[in-house]
Amino acid sequence: MKPSILGVLVTQFAILSLMAFGGANAVVPEIHRQAVEVHHWMTDKEFAALFAIAQSAPGPNFLVATLVGWKAAGLAGALAATAAMCAPSCLLTYWLVKAWDRYKETAWRNAIAAGVAPVTVGLIGSSALLLVRAADHGWKLAVVTAATAGVAYFTRYNPLWCLAVAGGLGAVGVLG
């Protein structure tokens, strides 16, 4: 049983690694679809909790992959998912950077970046929608989401403050 889960994790995250234009947030909907809808490794609510934990911890935010792997197959799953999420894009980047001068500012590289950008924005919008749906049970949580989005969009405060305040409010029980 376990090896096949590991195989699925590695295959899925390796594919997503090469799809994650604009960072890990763009592939959150697919991670969610696989983890919740296709393989039933966790519920919607658990996914929201794991995403929140990954987002509030220090380090790169693709580590939601680590937690999904951990939930699906324990420590081996966490390591496999992390490695699979990194390795393909790392190899591609390494290879392209070595050939940096040849690819620097070429017309096709710019066209690819500019062409992929709107698709990426649509994907990150999808992530936002699914996370709002998974996280906001009740109007108080929806207010937290809206306030955080407003602060992050209109001001230059470190977003960590929003997470700290929201976590604190939740801990004392005013959001329930």
Partner: peptide, 25 residues
């Protein structure tokens, strides 16, 4: 308490992704 905290964090984290999408769009 931990459940409450993670719920709050989740709502805020979702808000951050909303802002990221808006900033990029």
């Amino acid at each position: 308490r931990l459940q409450g905290a993670v719920m709050g964090l989740g709502a805020a984290a979702a808000g951050l992704v909303v802002a990221t999408a808006a900033k990029m769009a």
